[in-house]
């Protein structure tokens, strides 16, 4: 129970950081979204061996972490979750692409290894950029800006509901699990034979609870939300942020990265 509860707290702890005050928190959400999108696009536009060209892009998450005073460990712990997925995606390259890039005595560093490292770096940087965006921007403002960017409303509503109901689902699971454990034979984990009915009941209870949460939201004007209160247009600081970060991203993409790569190879 305590474990599930602490997991729920972890889910929301990142968003709680968005209430802090810093020069990054004070920027318009749209500026931060644009900058993050441009960052991801630039990183994804490199080819699969561009490890050294992508590496300088680490400045962006590190700079934001420093300026926004986001605990680096909090971001790192979450980024690590993505690691198995990208390792799984890139590990086959090690065996399929065996042409050597460099030779260190007996050991040859292959193109496959280079592409695996590139995938890992690319994933870690992109995921950390998104996590930092969430940590420095209130979730409501993020979704509101996405609406202003004319993303389909259904996707944004799904995003909001999923985010809010994860806590509801976890809380229901925690309550049911403690009730189960107190009366189960072993007093420990969930037995396989009870798994089906447990999950079924969890679904029904979560649905019922989610319905009540939605009613409470409606009672406070959710369905009839007026979006006109979204922050006004970008000011000069926001434009400076977009132009500066965007300029650096593009410069790294087409200029300096060629030079850095050229020095290594």
């Amino acid at each position: 129970m305590t474990d599930i509860r602490s997991k729920i707290e972890q889910i929301y702890s990142l968003e709680q950081l968005s209430a802090q005050n810093s020069c990054v928190h004070g920027l318009h959400p749209l500026a931060k979204i644009c900058s993050t999108i441009l960052y991801i696009v630039c990183i994804l536009s490199f080819d699969r061996y561009a490890f050294f060209e992508i590496l300088p892009y680490a400045f962006y998450p590190l700079l934001l972490i420093f300026l926004a005073k986001v605990p680096i460990g909090m971001i790192f712990k979450r980024v690590i979750i993505a690691l198995p997925f990208c390792l799984f995606a890139g590990v086959s390259n090690v065996f399929l692409d065996t042409a050597p890039v460099m030779q260190f005595g007996e050991f040859s560093f292959t193109f496959g290894m280079l592409s695996l490292f590139t995938i890992v770096l690319r994933t870690l940087l992109c995921v950390s950029a998104v996590l930092i965006l969430v940590a420095v921007t209130p979730f409501d403002e993020l979704t509101e800006e996405l609406r202003r960017m004319h993303l389909p409303n259904i996707f944004i509503t799904l995003l909001e509901m999923t985010y809010r109901y994860i806590g509801v689902l976890a809380e229901e699971a925690a309550t049911m699990f403690i009730g189960y454990r107190l009366r189960s034979r072993t007093g420990s984990g969930l037995e396989m034979k009870d798994m089906g009915s447990f999950i079924g009941q969890l679904l029904l209870r979560s649905f019922d609870r989610a319905d009540r949460v939605y009613q409470a939201m409606k009672c406070r004007g959710y369905a009839l939300r007026n979006f006109s209160h979204a922050q006004n247009n970008l000011d000069k600081h926001d434009w400076c942020f977009i132009l500066l970060t965007g300029g650096i991203f593009l410069l790294l993409r087409w200029g300096a990265s060629q030079y850095v790569a050229g020095r290594f190879f």
Binding site: Y12, E15, Q16, A19, P138, F139, D140, R164, G167, V168, E171, R209, R212, V213, Q215, A216, M217, R220, G221, Y222, L224, R225, N226, S228, H229
Partner: peptide
């Protein structure tokens, strides 16, 4: 618990007011 679905108590209290466009 049905009314407290935002990360902090402040956000929960602000939810309705933000929906009012304040």
């Amino acid at each position: 618990d049905d009314q407290l679905f935002m990360p902090t108590i402040y956000d929960n209290i602000a939810f309705g007011l933000r929906n009012m466009g304040m």
